Simulated assay, not measured.
Amino acid sequence: MDQFNRRAFLARASLFGAFVSAGVAFPGALNGSLGAVGRANAQGTGSAVLDAVEEFSLDTMRALCVMVMPGPDEWSRQQGTPREDPGPIEVGGGEFMKDLFDNYLAMGDQLSQPLALGLGEALSDMGIPTEPFLGLSEPDGRRIDQVLGYVYSDRVLPLSLPVALLLNTGALLVNPGSIVGPLGSPFSRLSLGDKCRVLEGIEGPVPQLISIIDGALPVPLRGSASGFLRFAGGILLQGTAFGVYSEQNNFDRATRTVTPRPVPWDLTGFRPTGLVDGHPEFIGYYQNRTEVPADA
């Protein structure tokens, strides 16, 4: 995993300037996937910038989901594994993962905010511009960490954001050319093989990646990077598989029914004749017993 080396990354940083100065366009509205980014550039308002940053996180989560279950979508095509069958985009896999990180996995704002701002600062120090990384063209030239600090100065920072920043930092370490291209984040532009290299570096965790994160954190939080990487590496693919292969997107809590038939059930051949209400053998007591002796 030599590609996760700060010095090597700094040497590669000149590629970013070459891509931008060569006039490589950032397709911010490909298939409408970056509409929020376009609005942020046009309006420059806090809410529009927030929408763009949130869209950046969601785009990254969608790119993660197609690693587990590809489909006919543009994220699967970009990683080189399209399928005709419906995939995680159709079942809301990206939204599930974002909601999982933001609302169900505990990590206090006192850690998630420094992690996000620290990663943003590290990216900025390495010469990564706000545009095209976040797709935001700020008139006053604010850095990535400054943009994030501005957006979340009076809001709780969602955990999905530092996770998305981590994945995209890894994407740039593996393939600096992913700074530009289709879709809404560098991680989304990687091949499946390169995505696996990013996950390998996180699950390791690779010492160089730890140093990049720790070096950007304030002193009281130094040493938190390895724990964060172990946490992220342990939940990324497992949580994704749970989300995209479950029926959570089709479960109606009011009627306690699953409708329509979930896509993963068809992909796996689960319950080909539909739901069952149980087996007759389990109605009442087993073998008509009415009691169990104490010494049984």
Rank of each mutant, 00 (worst) to 15 (best):
Q3R: 15
A25C: 04
A25Q: 09
A29T: 08
N31Y: 06
L34H: 05
G38V: 14
A42T: 12
V49R: 01
L50C: 08
T60I: 09
T60N: 05
L64N: 13
V66P: 01
V66C: 04
M67Y: 01
P72V: 11
Q78P: 00
T81F: 04
D85Y: 03
E95C: 02
F101V: 10
D102V: 00
D102I: 00
M107I: 13
Q110S: 14
L115H: 06
A116P: 00
G120T: 09
M126D: 12
G127V: 13
T130D: 09
G135S: 03
L136K: 06
E138S: 03
G141L: 08
R142I: 06
R143G: 03
V147Y: 00
Y150I: 00
V151L: 08
V156P: 02
L159W: 08
L161R: 02
L165D: 14
V180D: 05
G184R: 02
G184Q: 04
S188R: 03
S188C: 09
L192T: 05
C196E: 14
R197C: 03
E200N: 11
E203H: 03
L209G: 02
I213V: 07
R222E: 15
R222M: 11
A225T: 11
S226H: 15
S226I: 15
G227Q: 15
F228W: 05
F231R: 05
I235Q: 07
L237Q: 12
Q238Y: 02
G239E: 13
T240S: 07
F242H: 10
V244Y: 03
S246Y: 05
Q248F: 01
T257Q: 12
V258D: 13
V258Q: 09
P262E: 04
W265Q: 04
V276R: 14
V276G: 06
D277M: 05
H279K: 05
E281P: 01
E281W: 07
E281M: 06
N288E: 15
N288L: 07
R289C: 14
T290A: 04
